[in-house]
Design a binder for these strands. Structure first.
Length: 305
DNA sequence: GGCCAGGTTCGCT
DNA sequence: AGCGAACATGGC
């Protein structure tokens, strides 16, 4: 077991704790990602080898930096490179919120949110596939139930890595979910419809009929079109993916019920906003709507509103 | 027990 | 285009 340590300097404002909190990583049943005592941990696969990668932030007096540790049976220059790229993307340490922050300064609604959650970046899912499956599974149900279902498939279909006394789970591969099959997922607390969506998408990805990772390289519209052509993926899910998996800064899931309620309270005399009205109103926040969405949800989760 | 929760599809007007 | 039902589950 070799161990290597690296230091990464994000933009000054970056706050690991707030970012991991937003990602639900500190919740016991999140399974794949662990955030505990100031350290974030996750297994990163590279060429069929498992690397345990951890990140922690030290707030020394003059400099704010992230320390990244990689543990692996064998490491190479390219495996280390891969792990560093992955981890900094997952924890959002490579993002620059300064454009969003300057826009928010002159916005009465955003300004308090930015003050409260300053340093929160947008955590990215380890893969687009993982983001998509997690998003579909969370449709229409409470975040609490979504976590239960997510950890169920992770523990049942994901691979396991043991180091010392600790056990780490990986997110299921497209192959393993395809293999699980509709019937089995249905028997495991998923609606038949959802089980179908998950298996269909897993099969398409594992057979190479779609390439979810490649969506990162497409213009926004094309990525949304491709995603919504999949059964089980509507506007909400596609935009959620733009924000949480594809790294776009201007996604906006206007179909979101919680978002419509909050916006209604502030901008529509307390009346819930329609999807269309929410989308229209959101245009004043271009091109930073992914940030706006993230900060609003951070507010929702912490009882800010 | 009933209603809702960070939606989507399908089948009607 | 727009509307309503169905979908499975956990929590209040």
């Amino acid at each position: 077991m070799t161990k290597t340590v690296h230091v990464f300097r994000p933009f000054d404002s970056y706050n690991l704790h707030r970012t991991c909190d937003f990602g639900s990583f500190s919740r016991a049943n999140y399974s794949t990602d662990i955030y505990c005592e100031g350290t974030y941990k996750r297994v990163v696969q590279y060429e069929s080898r498992s690397n345990l990668v951890s990140a922690s932030q030290s707030q020394s007096t003059d400099h704010n930096h992230i320390e990244i540790t990689i543990e692996c049976k064998e490491s190479t220059k390219s495996s280390i490179e891969h792990c560093l790229t992955q981890i900094s993307r997952i924890i959002g340490a490579d993002q620059d919120p300064s454009g969003f922050y300057s826009m928010a300064e002159s916005d009465n609604f955003l300004n308090p949110l930015v003050n409260k959650f300053h340093g929160l970046h947008i955590p990215q899912t380890a893969s687009v596939f993982e983001g998509l499956i997690s998003a579909i599974l969370g449709q229409q149900i409470s975040t609490h139930v979504a976590r239960i279902l997510r950890s169920l498939i992770v523990e049942r279909y994901g691979s396991i890595l043991s180091i010392g006394n600790e056990t780490y789970h990986s997110f299921p591969t497209p192959q393993s979910l395809e293999l699980a099959g509709i019937e089995e997922l249905h028997a495991n607390k998923f609606s038949r419809r959802k089980a179908e969506y998950l298996c269909e998408i897993s099969a398409l990805e594992s057979k190479g009929f779609i390439d979810l990772e490649n969506l990162r390289n497409l213009p926004t519209e094309d990525a949304v079109d491709m995603l919504t052509s999949l059964r089980g993926v509507g506007q909400w899910t596609a935009h959620w993916l733009l924000i949480r998996s594809l790294g776009y800064e201007d996604g906006f899931p206007s179909g979101d019920l919680a978002l419509q309620k909050i916006m209604g309270e502030y901008f529509n005399d307390g009346e819930i906003m329609s999807e269309r009205a929410a989308m229209e109103y959101s245009k004043k926040w271009r091109p930073y709507r992914s940030w706006v969405t993230t900060y609003i949800f951070a507010g929702v989760r912490s009882g800010f509103f």
